[in-house]
């Protein structure tokens, strides 16, 4: 049951996290900025709007908004957010299942983009594929580096390994932390990899798939994207900051878990906002270099496992 609550918590928080980042970014830029509630307002408005579809669109455009949300929710069900004990809803939280679901949702988004035949989406797809080539190995290896010493390829095990400092090495944890955090910037389309605020179609990566979406489809897709962003934060917490996630199901433990999760999300999103405030966007082909570095860090974490 607790896993259902976890998923609901993630769903409620996801738009706020997006709104908070936007708000804090605006503050850093020296302006009042949009209300942190704006993403919720956007969703409300978009749901009420008409859907305009491309005349080249096939069934893909109609299915993917729902499917991608379903897949992200499925992935959310794999994750331990508040509690490590009762086990996540799905597959006992296997990282392979989790990452495959997210990869599938990425694939479906790319298909959505290509469905209308927009050249911008094609461009974004090419770039996203280029990045994903290094993102996936990095995230896998980092999670394995944290989990394998404790014999875990699933989130509860990783959590336990991270929580029990006996089996975990600080070098491994910090290397994995940097690698995962570095990859999250790419996956959530943040500066310096992708500019979420840009209006320039030619420079977009993630937003380019949504250029043709409108109305409720846009709402669903934006919501999935926000949820995915929060999922990545949660993965980082599970692997590197397991504090507060407990195995008790008492009220106090639950409260602590929620509180610590909120604080962690606050920290992570503030960090993202600050990074966005001080960075410019890289050249497209500088990103693979950066990702290769992150992959090297992940592999180094794995080696540290083996050596230390």
């Amino acid at each position: 049951m607790i896993s259902v609550w976890q998923v609901l918590l993630l769903m409620v928080m996801a738009p706020f996290v997006q709104g908070y980042v936007q708000w804090l970014k605006a503050r850093i830029q020296g302006r009042i900025g949009p209300s942190p509630l704006k993403p919720w307002r956007d969703l409300r408005k978009q749901l009420a709007k008409e859907v305009v579809l491309s005349n080249a669109a096939s069934w893909v455009s109609r299915l993917v908004p729902y499917l991608s949300l379903g897949l992200v929710l499925g992935a959310a069900a794999c994750l331990p957010v508040l509690s490590g004990l009762p086990g996540p809803l799905l597959g006992s939280g296997s990282i392979f299942l989790f990452l495959s679901l997210l990869a599938f949702s990425r694939l479906s988004l790319l298909l959505l983009g290509l469905d209308s035949g927009s050249a911008f989406a094609g461009m974004g797809a090419g770039r996203d594929l280029l990045f994903s080539l290094l993102v996936e190995p990095t995230i896998f290896i980092s999670l394995l580096a944290v989990g394998l010493p404790a014999d875990a390829t699933a989130f509860p095990g990783i959590l336990r390994a991270a929580a029990a400092n006996t089996s975990q090495n600080p070098a491994v944890a910090s290397l994995a932390l940097v690698a995962i955090a570095g990859v999250i910037l790419v996956e959530t389309g943040r500066l310096p990899v992708d500019n979420p605020d840009t209006h320039l179609e030619l420079t977009m990566v993630h937003e380019s798939f949504l250029l043709e979406s409108s109305g409720r489809y846009l709402a669903l897709l934006s919501f999935s994207a926000q949820l995915r962003q929060l999922l990545w934060y949660t993965v980082l917490f599970a692997a590197c900051f397991p504090w507060g996630i407990n195995e008790s199901s008492t009220g106090a433990g639950f409260a602590i878990a929620i509180l610590s999760f909120l604080i962690k999300v606050l920290f992570a999103s503030s960090a993202v906002a600050v990074i966005e405030g001080v960075f410019a966007k890289w050249r497209v082909f500088a990103v693979p270099r950066y990702l290769t570095f992150m992959l090297a860090l992940a592999v180094a974490a794995m080696l540290a496992d083996a050596i230390l």
């Binding site: 008409e50 859907v51 579809l53 005349n55 080249a56 927009s118 109305g215």
Partner: peptide, 9 residues
């Protein structure tokens, strides 16, 4: 909600 079809933007 209504759905309308127009050329790709």
């Amino acid at each position: 909600t209504s759905t309308r079809t127009v050329p790709t933007w």
